[in-house]
Design a protein around this nucleic acid. Sequence first.
DNA 1: CTTTATTATAGCACATATGCTATAATAAAG
DNA 2: CTTTATTATAGCATATGTGCTATAATAAAG
Lengths: 84, 84
Amino acid sequence: MERKELFDEEGLRLFAEHLKQLRKSKGVSQEELSYRSGLVLSQIARIETARTNPRLSTLFQIARGLDIELAELFNFRLQPKQQS
Amino acid sequence: MERKELFDEEGLRLFAEHLKQLRKSKGVSQEELSYRSGLVLSQIARIETARTNPRLSTLFQIARGLDIELAELFNFRLQPKQQS
DNA sequence: CTTTATTATAGCACATATGCTATAATAAAG
DNA sequence: CTTTATTATAGCATATGTGCTATAATAAAG
């Protein structure tokens, strides 16, 4: 039996896009965000391409790296799950 | 050599407290949130006691379970890391 | 085109999140 | 106190995040 961890790919893609926008609007490269956040460059790239499902503490690091409020990372709308 | 994943315990504790408040203000038990979010009860408890560092998709599930905006989960202030 | 900057991928090792299940601890009633 | 509801812990199995490092792909200049 498959116990599937089916996480919200749609949400992750929305978040990825939002983050990329935010970062670019601040004029910082992935490498610079890497330096400022303490995350490795490959991890920044993984998040911005929605190839990973980051932990909350990682989000904290990103918010600090971009010097923004945590909530600002989440100013995008999550799709409501379809009712059964 | 220890490669330590030193995540932000302070942030996780703040988040835990914030979530517990939010949930109680909605008058829902951990069990009910478990049901609504699709997360197991033990996981809700782990988060509210800051014993785990949840993934972004887990946060999505909680926001849906509480029927709130994602950003509302993050209406608390993160401590700025001390400068070196 | 050549050089340089930026972003995307990859693979491995290790740490940890999460589901599942059971149980304990605590609180709330009665 | 006894019963019931709620929350906290625990241990195991499995999936996956993240650091690290190297490399490839793409973009931006020159």
